[in-house]
Design a protein around this nucleic acid. Structure first.
Lengths: 355, 355
DNA sequence: CTGAAAGCGCTTACAG
DNA sequence: CTGAAAGCGCTTACAG
């Protein structure tokens, strides 16, 4: 059926118009319903579109209309639970709005790397960009994005360091909840296997504040070198090696780290939760299927992603109409999920306070 | 510094040219190094680019050059381990090649849904598309993609149902390895908690063939309703409820399902691996940090993703030069990871064959 | 080494 | 209800 015998060329609006016997304007009208088209012509256009497998050319369309149908997402990681789930939320909301998601990983904080990521994404002319400001890399990217692009950050409650609209995750409250739970069980010293990124210290700060206000103590603090179980195990090994008094409660940077902590505790002959209580963070699906089932703080990352997209849409509209600043969306509040990894300390395991 | 007091407009090549006192062609030349530009002019252009925060307009550029700097990726899921990791591999390779990744989730096999996903991605005019053909949805999308776009599939060893270049994952051999391991330990009946998607039955087929060739038996087979631990637990509950003889070995559709199987076995008072050996599939990071550590089959999804991108690049080049078909890339061969969830059956747990 | 002209595929006024 | 013309931001010949 094709005129040429070679491989089919990507059809253009002119191909469709020719086949339907109408002008290209008419084809546009059938697509965007911007004006009435006679039923007969409309039928012919749809038929031609179908036969040719025409899907339009977003590049050409954006170029002239000034409307871009792509959202850029920049993150330092796409595999760790929080990142992956936030991305899924963004994609979900974007798809509903008929926008495609352009994703690019930022490899580091060095100016060259940051610039190259930004160039890769902005070079595609997205309608706006969402940055997962979960770590230093995210913050660096945020700072490098030019003011003329609508940008939304997803940040811990304190917000990003630059003046951009953001979706807040109230990790601080989550940290407090986790600490309160351990305190209520009777633990008096909470040890920390902290997250790898200083950027999300917010959750750890919540733990510290709650513990200190209760007059209890923060024990040893060891930072995991990354968001992984392996790093969690190493950190816990180190923590146990350096600890003089028995450890009865550990707060972990996230659930993946907690699983590594589990392994370290077992290797040291310690039982969970009889000897040591463990709390994670995020409510990764594995938390409910670990052994013992892990007590953790649920953060609804899917909702975070959806909110971020919603906020970005409003920013894009505001940019177009040159409106004033868009308000930040409401913060996502986490929830405590009590499972089997936490219990009261065994009598005598915590030495009585001297004096 | 800006002429207007309003919000800064996205700068164009004309803005850069004006500021640098050169023509737009010169700006292009500085960027793509297609021709020599005098050092002085080059300096001025770079300066203007820097000051304006110019990143080009991929849409306009693609439109005239015919080169597109985006790869589309379509998958039914972005969170399950295999999907997420393949995606990460694609993104990684794409980034090295200075291409952005356009991702869109396909929600279902219904023609309307498939068409809408395809339209969303093709509407952005990607240079090519990679489809994760890990399930029926992937297959449906693959079938709906028009012939004029370069497409690469990532498929189980048998390949996609349509005639497209693909990266093969040799799940069949992986299934055989898992079964061989259980057989070698002395198990004579292997039960299956099968994967949710008929599309990846390849791994199960490998198990079946290996077991049958060894003259051993496939026991009960229950399909998990999705790739999750919850579904794995339900399926195992069902399997145990229906089983008349003791279960000594279970092959699970993947590692997430295996964790659910763990929980079901524990709830039934069965020990792993003393009473029941469990084998997973994929080598999800949790496998190494579950309790007991899960024996599984490692599939290098990262490499799969990288290969897929490499193959797509060759397809794109072939399309441009109207060359003949591009050969399929070599298959990814999985590896068995023996850990603590498998052991010989307890004496007497398997009734001697009658006769 | 440099730039004026043409044109990629589309949509937006504009004129009927 | 319909189409001819202009132009979005860029790059590709072409001419110097």
């Amino acid at each position: 059926m094709n005129e040429s015998s070679g491989r089919a060329r990507r059809p253009t609006i002119a191909d469709v118009a020719r086949r339907a016997g109408v002008s290209t304007v008419t084809v546009t009208r059938v697509f965007d319903r911007s004006a009435r088209v006679s039923p007969e012509r409309e039928r012919r256009v749809r038929e031609a579109v179908e036969e040719l497998g025409y899907f339009g050319n977003g590049a050409a369309s954006s170029l002239v209309s000034g409307r871009f149908s792509t959202v850029g997402v920049i993150a330092s990681d796409t595999l760790s639970f929080g990142y992956a789930k936030s991305l899924a939320g963004i994609e979900d909301a974007a798809r509903e709005a008929r926008m495609a998601v352009l994703i690019s990983v930022a490899e580091g904080v060095e100016p060259d790397l940051v610039r190259s990521t930004v160039a890769l994404v902005l070079g595609q002319s997205p309608a706006g960009v969402i940055v997962l400001d979960y770590d230093e890399i995210g913050s660096a990217v945020l700072a490098a994005l030019p003011a003329y692009v609508p940008v939304v950050a997803v940040s811990p409650a304190t917000g990003p360091r630059v003046d951009r609209p953001y979706v807040a995750i109230d990790e601080y409250t989550g940290g407090r909840m986790a600490a309160r739970h351990l305190l209520d069980l009777g633990h008096r010293t909470i040890h920390l296997v902290a997250p790898p990124n200083y950027g999300v210290e917010t959750r750890t700060r919540g733990v510290r504040d709650e513990v200190q206000e209760a007059g209890a103590e923060i024990g040893s603090v060891v930072r995991a070198r990354e968001w992984s179980s392996g790093a969690g195990r190493e950190a816990m090994d180190e923590l146990l090696a350096g600890s003089t008094s028995p450890v009865t409660a550990v707060f972990c940077g996230n659930d993946e780290i907690a699983l590594g902590v589990y392994q370290s505790l077992r290797a040291h002959g310690l039982r969970i939760p009889e000897d040591v209580s463990v709390v994670g963070f995020d409510d990764n699906p594995v938390a409910d299927f670990s052994y013992p089932r892990l007590t953790t703080v649920d953060q609804d990352f899917m909702l975070v992603g959806r909110h971020a997209f919603g906020l970005l849409e409003r920013c894009i509209a505001a940019f177009e109409e040159e409106e004033a600043e868009v308000p930040a969306a409401a913060a996502i509040v986490p929830e405590l999920r009590v499972r089997d990894s936490t219990a009261p300390p065994r009598p005598g395991s915590t030495p009585p306070r001297s004096g």
